[in-house]
Simulated scan of single mutants.
Amino acid sequence: MVKNDSPSRVSLKSITPDVSTAMGGLHRAAVSAAQVAKVEDEILELVRIRASQINGCAFCLDMHTKDARAKGEQEQRIHVLNAWRETPFFTERERAALALTEAVTLVHDGRVPDDVYAQAAAVFDEAQVAALIWAATVINAYNRIAIATRMVPGAYQPAQK
């Protein structure tokens, strides 16, 4: 548990602005690739939430559950996302994306198994699989940044449309 009296951590954006800008560029490029490939926004938010659950990133969970709700995601699906295999609430495409996300996030647990990749390739085309791998990679990087610098959740508000 992070205490309020914890020592402050480095501000990566202030200390290394070029790297921070590059990370933002990677994020924008990954979002663009997903849009071009026509990967559903709902799936991308599920990917971001699920990776953040696995990594224990409170800041990113706060952000992406708010973004998902703002885009119309159902509370029930958000609440059971960490047990998605046990529910009937997710489509075949969502299940394939979640399995791929888990494999990418937990790559140290046996890499990305062929059956997980094949499941994704069966319901997504190559551009979509690539976009999902980039989405999972970017959120995992952001999770590590937020955790290492102890970014505080709570203040984020989704953009108004």
Rank of each mutant, 00 (worst) to 15 (best):
L26S: 11
A136G: 01
A34T: 00
S8W: 09
R150L: 09
V36C: 03
D114Y: 07
L44S: 02
F59M: 06
P153Y: 07
E40L: 10
V80D: 09
G25Q: 09
H79S: 13
A141R: 15
Q128N: 10
M23V: 06
I15W: 12
N82G: 15
I54T: 07
R150D: 13
A97Y: 02
D41K: 03
C57Q: 05
L46G: 03
R150K: 03
E86L: 05
R69I: 14
I49C: 09
T137W: 09
P88M: 10
E42Y: 14
T87I: 07
A51E: 12
G24H: 13
K71I: 04
I54W: 11
E42R: 13
N55M: 08
D109P: 04
D62C: 08
T16S: 14
T21M: 09
P88S: 15
A136I: 10
I15N: 08
V107D: 08
A30G: 10
R50S: 09
V129D: 00
H79R: 15
D67M: 07
N55T: 09
S20T: 11
L46Q: 04
L81R: 15
F124V: 01
D115E: 14
G110A: 05
I49E: 02
T137D: 05
Q128E: 02
R50L: 06
P7R: 15
F124Q: 07
H108C: 12
A155Y: 09
E102P: 10
D114P: 02
D5P: 11
E92I: 12
G72D: 01
F90T: 14
